Simulated scan of single mutants.
Amino acid sequence: MHRKTRHMSNPPLTLYGLKNCDTCKKAMQALTAADHEVAFVDIRAEADLPDRVPAWLKAVGAEALVNRRSTTWRSLTTDQQAQALGDGAAALLIEHPTLIKRPVIDTGADILVGWTSGTEQALKN
């Protein structure tokens, strides 16, 4: 008797990013190549940031979520930058979605930020 083994696909993921972001494109390609089912959500146009940002901040903190290499970061005042890394993070990230480090990947169990070897490793486990 021959038994067929069914290939178990990875759990579905949601990738929050920008359509024109090279890092987001790279992450999307790698995830789909690794048999992940990925839903892409544009953080400027489609994401419910007032709902998402507080949850992301709770999960990973402002240090991880705020993109301090962005043009948006450099355009903030010193006071706003301090706010972005403190109690005012949620309001600033919602007002300036490009201040969010990308991609933000929701696995259903975890929130992963950025496309790094650590993120890739976390998704393999």
Rank of each mutant, 00 (worst) to 15 (best):
G61H: 09
Q83E: 14
T72K: 11
A62D: 00
L92P: 00
A89Y: 03
G61P: 00
E63D: 12
V60M: 06
A89D: 04
D87Y: 03
T77F: 04
A59H: 01
T71H: 12
L65P: 00
A59I: 02
Q81F: 07
A59L: 10
D87F: 04
S70D: 07
A64E: 13
A90G: 05
T77W: 05
L93Y: 02
V66F: 09
A84T: 14
T72F: 04
A62L: 08
R74E: 14
E63R: 15
T77K: 09
G88I: 11
R74V: 11
S70A: 14
L76R: 03
T72H: 11
A84C: 12
T72S: 14
V66T: 11
S75F: 04
A62W: 02
A89T: 06
Q83N: 10
G88T: 08
Q83A: 08
L92T: 00
Q83D: 12
A84D: 08
A62M: 10
A62Q: 08
G86N: 14
K58W: 00
D79W: 11
R69M: 06
R74Q: 15
L93P: 03
S70R: 09
A84I: 10
S75N: 14
R74F: 09
T78D: 13
D79L: 15
G86M: 06
L76K: 05
L65H: 03
G61C: 05
A90I: 01
E63W: 05
L85Q: 10
S70V: 03
T78H: 11
T72V: 15
A62P: 04
L76P: 03
G88R: 14
A91C: 08
A91E: 07
R68E: 08
E63K: 15
R69V: 02
L65A: 12
G86H: 12
L57T: 01
G88V: 07
L65I: 12
N67E: 12
L93T: 04
L65V: 11
A59M: 05
Q81G: 05
R74P: 01
A64N: 03
T78F: 03
A82E: 13
N67S: 13
L92Q: 00
G88H: 10
T78E: 13
W73E: 15
Q80R: 13
Q81N: 13
T71N: 12
D87N: 13
L85R: 07
A90T: 04
R68P: 00
G86D: 10
V60D: 00
Q80T: 12
A89R: 06
A91D: 09
D87T: 10
G88E: 06
E63C: 01
E63H: 13
D79T: 14
W73A: 13
S75G: 09
L65R: 08
G61W: 01
D87A: 15
